[in-house]
């Protein structure tokens, strides 16, 4: 998505990225970025909190006109009720638990991963999505 933003900027169309994967957007490099530090899935803010969501969008609009240089990043003042998700998401841990996000035991995951291993030419393309 950040590459799409870069293209639009390069042809004269201003953009703002709203997202929660700070490191990925930072590495790609975009003109304007509103960082929302919540679990992936709700980049405009928590579900059922329309006031917060709208404030994030308004912040993005204000950033569009206030930024004077590329790579301008603003962090939205949004918090999540707990920090547990920071550890749990995609965790490769020692417990045998699994979850919808795929957390779980390292050795078990090797077993699960074995049948779906791709040829070496396709390795490194395992993810189904990227922010």
């Amino acid at each position: 998505m950040s590459l799409v933003a870069r293209h639009l900027e390069s042809v004269g169309i201003p953009t703002v990225v709203i997202g929660s994967a700070h490191d990925i957007v930072h590495e790609v490099g975009v003109a304007r970025f509103v960082f929302v530090d919540v679990p992936l899935g709700n980049p405009c803010g928590p579900p059922d909190d329309p006031r917060t969501q709208e404030s994030v969008v308004e912040l993005a609009l204000q950033l569009a006109v206030s930024a004077i240089a590329p790579r301008t990043v603003v962090q939205a003042p949004v918090t999540w009720p707990s920090d547990e998700w920071r550890d749990v998401y995609m965790r490769v841990g020692s417990s045998a638990t699994t979850s919808r996000s795929g957390t779980g035991n390292r050795s078990n995951m090797r077993t699960f991963g074995q049948p779906t291993r791709r040829p070496s030419s396709q390795r490194g393309q395992a993810q189904s999505s990227s922010p």
Partner: peptide, 28 residues
């Protein structure tokens, strides 16, 4: 996280994200 997660699943070569120093910018 994604590098460690997929390494544990048997993908030894990490995904390489696009990285840029600068960024195009169109003033509003």
């Amino acid at each position: 996280k994604s590098r460690e997660f997929y390494a544990a699943q048997g993908y030894p070569t990490p995904y390489r994200w696009a990285a840029n120093v600068g960024a195009p910018f169109t003033p509003v």
